[in-house]
Design a protein around this nucleic acid. Structure first.
Length: 564
RNA sequence: GGGCCCGUGGCUUAGCUUGGAUAAAGCACCGGCCUUCUAAGCCGGGGAUCGCGGGUUCGAAUCCCGCCGGGUCCGCCA
């Protein structure tokens, strides 16, 4: 509803500026602590018209026409506060917000186009670690935000099955057995680490790896079977972890499909014709000159085989034919690659993707490396954080049965982990400290979940007393400061989703603020002990808060417990 | 060496795109609130020359230039 309010303010303000015959370039509307929405336009006008900003603001306000007696205006008043023009919401705005949330028609984005978003895409050579976790969680929240905003979203996991690393594992698996008692992706990692030691120790092994890779690229059946066995084994483990995190992909796209299907070759041919191509001086590798990028891009090895970037070009061409927007969630180390990709796609006249680049996660001991065995596995983290959450629940709710406690611990633990990862802007570097991550007490997610549980608790208690949420309630009884603030906050979910499309941390921030607003209301306004009319209105408000809290948690991919 | 990102109370951050009203939160610290719907909560308090130096502007955490510190990338890895 806040979005509608903003639009109405825009219209009214535009008209007033026209009547006052001011030429403006921007309305400069901003959220403000002093008003529901505020305009700074008087500053820039003052400059061009050589008047004082306060005078201009006064003047504009005189020209504003706010239909004060009308029933359906969202604006109650506008006042000049020095140079600022402050707008305030009307009772109708508050009523409408409550009504629409209650009826489930608030915050529903209109149908937009189709988006393909790629995230996680960890190499199938071991389990997900905390770096992949950041990718996966940012990506998943993005998916949820875009879906809410009305897009048709398809989620991809791009499987890098053609790299040397995978060759090393597959070849290694011929000599080293997978541990039978381990989760699949962890067993693969063990072989990977052991095989890398073979690489370092013995050059014969590396030759075998390269031979196997060539066979795989040419589609040799035995090689394909070996690869599939290992890659699928690893992916099954990774999917189990993702599922536990509440993340799923619609499609797993294998890199090799583009090689064997001929798409990579087609891209290469086209680049040779349309691109600025030359052979490297020393070898015969193919170099592609890209606009604005100093270094040329190697698009073909000396031996004629393809490289990661070339295969990625084929993948992106395929994606872009199937949708309106392509979004990739990449680590910072892929930034240059993503620029090269964009430039090369321009040459191919393919839609350029949008990138969400996130900074690295490192450990206090240094950067992460699967190969060196220096990582914290996502599974281990999830296990420990759920355990810690369980200790909390156990301490606080001795009355609950075991199953219930475990369920709450799972929701709270995973929620805390997800919130922690998404609350920070993607371009902030993170040093991961295990102990801090496990400190459930000071996490954002449990705070929000707790507010939701409180709302549920009130509604449960109401039901026991035989109170039902009434269809006719008098929203005008909700005049307390904390009630009105809560409603205004509730009205902003759609607005936040619309404006934080590629900035998932803003949703996390909003969720926290909403929970805070609910807690203030909770403290100030008794629901069940209020006299009937007021109780009815407040019960409706509690129900609305519950709905929006669970909605925003859902956008964050965090489950909303009914009690905790 | 060059490109990109980050630098905001003791710690972790929001705000920076589009410059404006006392710089906003959480954690930690100090003090208070459970005979009313869950205290994983609420209230109050101390604590910031917004990395440093210039510049633009009526006005800079925000824009521009330089520097310092940290991260990351830089042709046949992915």
């Amino acid at each position: 509803m806040f979005l509608e309010f903003k639009k109405e303010v825009e219209q009214v303000l535009k008209k007033a500026l026209k009547r006052a015959s001011y030429e403006y370039t921007e309305l400069e509307l901003e959220e403000s602590e002093h008003a529901d929405i505020s305009s700074n336009v008087a500053f820039s006008l003052a400059r061009t018209y050589k008047k004082s900003p306060a005078v201009v603001a006064e003047e504009i306000v005189r020209y504003l026409e706010i239909p004060s007696d009308s029933d359906d205006t969202l604006i109650s008043k506008a006042v000049a506060a020095g140079p600022y023009i402050n707008f305030y919401v009307s009772d109708f705005f508050l009523h409408e917000t409550v009504r629409k949330i209650k009826e489930g028609i608030e915050h529903v984005g209109e149908k937009k186009g189709k988006i393909i978003i790629e995230h996680t895409s960890a190499n199938p050579d071991g389990p997900l670690h905390i770096g992949h976790l950041r990718n996966a969680i940012i990506g998943d929240v993005l998916v949820r935000v875009l879906k809410r905003a009305g897009f048709d979203v398809e989620t991809h996991y791009y499987v890098n099955d053609m790299g040397r690393q995978i060759g090393v594992v597959v070849c290694g698996a011929e000599r080293i057995a997978f541990a039978a008692n381990k989760k699949a992706d962890h067993a693969v990692a063990d072989v990977y680490i052991a095989a890398n030691r073979l690489v370092d120790a013995n050059s014969e092994f590396l030759k075998d790896v390269e031979a196997l890779m060539r066979k795989y690229e040419s589609g040799d059946e035995a090689a394909v079977r070996k690869y599939e066995a290992v890659v699928k084994k690893c992916l099954s483990g990774i999917q189990t972890s993702l599922q536990r995190l509440n993340i799923r992909h619609d499609l797993f796209v294998w890199e090799s499909e583009f090689v064997r299907g001929g798409a990579v070759e087609a891209v290469m041919e086209e680049l040779k014709q349309k691109g600025d191509i030359k052979f490297d001086g020393s070898g015969s590798a193919l170099l592609l000159k890209l606009d604005g990028i100093e270094k040329e891009l190697v698009i073909q090895r000396t031996d004629g085989t393809s490289l990661y970037t070339t295969r990625d070009l084929a993948y992106h061409r395929w994606k872009s034919d199937r949708c309106d927007r392509v979004i990739d969630v990449f680590g910072k180390d892929h930034e240059l690659v993503s620029q090269q990709l964009s430039k090369a796609l321009e040459i191919l006249r393919v839609k350029v993707p949008e990138f969400v680049i996130f900074e690295f996660v490192s450990l206090p001991t240094g950067s992460l490396s699967t190969r060196a065995g220096r990582y914290i596995a996502a599974d281990e983290l999830m296990e420990k954080i759920e355990q810690r959450a369980y200790e909390e629940v156990d301490k606080k709710r001795k009355d609950l049965d075991e199953g219930k406690k475990l369920e709450i611990a799972r929701k709270v633990g995973i929620g805390a982990l997800r919130y922690d990862m998404v609350k920070v802007s993607p371009d902030k570097h993170i040093t991961f400290v295990f102990e801090d991550a496990l400190d459930i007490e000071k996490k954002g997610a449990p705070f929000i979940q707790y507010s939701h549980a409180r709302a549920c608790s009130i509604l449960r208690a109401a039901e026991e007393k035989g109170y039902v949420i009434a269809d006719d309630y008098d929203a005008s009884l909700l005049r307390e400061e904390s009630e009105m603030e809560l409603i205004k906050k509730l009205s902003k979910l759609g607005y936040v989703i619309g404006s934080s499309e590629l900035k998932p941390h803003l949703v996390a921030k909003y969720a926290r603020e909403l929970a805070e607003s609910f807690n203030l209301f909770y403290k100030d306004c008794p629901v069940l002990n209020a006299e009937e009319e007021l109780r009815n209105a407040r019960m409706v408000l509690v129900d609305c808060a519950k709905i929006v809290l669970s909605d925003v948690l859902d956008v964050l991919g965090i489950e909303a417990p009914e009690e905790m």
